[in-house]
Amino acid sequence: MAVDKNMKVLIVDDYKTMLRIIRNLLRQLGFTNIDEATDGSAALQLLRANGAGGPQGYGLVISDWNMEPMTGLQLLREVRADAKLKGVPFIMVTAESKSENVIAAKEAGVSNYIVKPFNAETLKSKMVSVLGDF
């Protein structure tokens, strides 16, 4: 099944410049229906308000880890514990690059993991691995 590039994507990062970078890279890949949040709790509110999947819900979450008050890992756990949200693809994009971080994220149910700094090709390849080719 082809990837719908009109799907809603939620990007979460406490650095506004990083939100802008990811938004621009996604736009270059053809994804323009993008919402932003600057921490896990704000992201969770948007997710609960819009749901996951379908025309109104989010088709992908791309989140940083190190944020306050709610981290990306806490957000991931909340998402996976929520019956209505648990299926949404979730990519972690973070500078946390120790193996224990990757393991913890995997155990929490992350779909894929990108270490900062990253390039557009890495972002695309991880999205393809999660969503399918586009």
Binding site: Y15, T17, N24, Q28, A95, P117, F118, N119, A120
Partner: peptide, 17 residues
Amino acid sequence: ATTRIYEACTFQDITGQ
């Protein structure tokens, strides 16, 4: 070229952290 510029700009996030 603009893709490379966006990629390079990720330095700000790392530097800030």
